[in-house]
């Protein structure tokens, strides 16, 4: 009978030591909403589970002069209850809060959603669009990694053995900057995104877009930052021509698969639709600032 060990270290060094010292597979447990499903189905068979939730600061949200620090294991529910974060990053919060049910929200964390490394992860596009940085700790010390560089392939991350994410940093939004996230699912809840789209926009005083980041989920092996889509709307007031160019750029960036959740054709078309709709929401939010 294979034996599994469990540890709940109370400090970063202890956690690193455990993770780095494991002979076989060691998994980090934060919210557990993906890990427990994988354990039960036998898709992952670790020899060690390191529960990071006892590490001080890994749960919670702090507002700093530079922006926000979100503990890696902070649950979606807590993120959704933080009024300052909701005001500053409505798109990041709505993406995070779309992960699973209310029950899943009680546990699911940003680090878990990211490190599960699914192209369909709902919190990731808006985090990337926001320029979020993951603080990674490990045997070789601490490094700050843009969120977009964590996932390298479905189910695979750039984290080395012994490394885990401690927290996320979100920059302080500029004046007239805001974001939005939309996903498409066949039901109203409880599905994995068929396509997801995060949009972060900055406007000038006249409502002209000065900066934009459009990130698509579930249309390629990893999240896609669509630079052509950003170019298509920068310098515009998101008029119909800009929206059409945005739609086309988003579709052109898709490299999806056909699976039980959607076809190539469907995903591609929806990517354009969501990019337009999310951009409009982000534009209105930024304009209202």
């Amino acid at each position: 009978m294979p034996r599994l060990s469990y540890a709940a270290p109370a400090s970063v060094p202890d956690a690193i030591k455990l993770l780095a010292g494991a002979e076989g597979l060691a998994k980090v447990l934060s919210g557990g909403t993906d890990l427990l499903v994988q354990l039960r189905s036998g898709r992952t068979r670790p020899e060690l589970i390191v529960d990071t939730k006892k590490i001080p600061g890994i749960i919670g949200i702090r507002e700093t002069e530079d922006g926000f620090v979100i503990g890696a294991a902070t649950s979606g529910a807590e993120i959704g209850e933080n009024a300052a974060l909701v005001a500053a990053y409505p798109g990041v919060v709505e993406g995070t809060n779309l992960i699973g049910s209310t029950q899943v929200q009680g546990r699911a964390s940003l680090a878990g959603n990211l490190c599960n490394a699914s192209p369909a992860a709902d919190s990731v596009p808006a985090l990337i669009a926001a320029g979020a940085v993951a603080v990674v700790v490990g045997p070789n010390g601490q490094r700050n990694v843009p969120v977009g560089q964590i996932v390298i392939a479905p189910g695979r991350t750039s984290l080395a053995k012994g490394e885990f994410i401690l927290e996320f940093h979100l920059p302080k939004p500029k004046a007239k900057q805001s974001d939005a996230y939309l996903r498409f699912i066949p039901r109203t809840e409880m599905d994995i995104a068929v396509v997801g789209c995060g949009v972060n926009l900055t406007l000038d005083a006249n409502g002209v877009i000065t900066a934009a980041c459009i990130v698509l989920g579930a249309v390629a092996p990893t999240q896609v930052v669509v630079e052509a889509a950003a170019k298509a709307i920068i310098g515009t007031k998101l008029d119909d021509a800009a929206l059409a160019a945005l739609d086309a750029a988003a579709r052109a960036a898709c490299n999806p698969i056909t699976d039980k959740r959607g076809t190539i054709e469907f995903r591609t078309k929806i990517a354009g639709v969501l990019a337009r709709r999310a951009a409009k929401i982000a534009y209105d939010r930024a304009g209202a600032r």
Partner: peptide, 24 residues
């Protein structure tokens, strides 16, 4: 019911076998 190319059910769970939920 969805089947893969090997004749195996491809959506054997409530995640992808989509029964109506309250908000639908």
């Amino acid at each position: 019911y969805l089947y893969d190319k090997n004749g195996r059910m491809d959506n054997a769970g409530f995640l992808d076998y989509r029964v109506p939920v309250a908000s639908d």
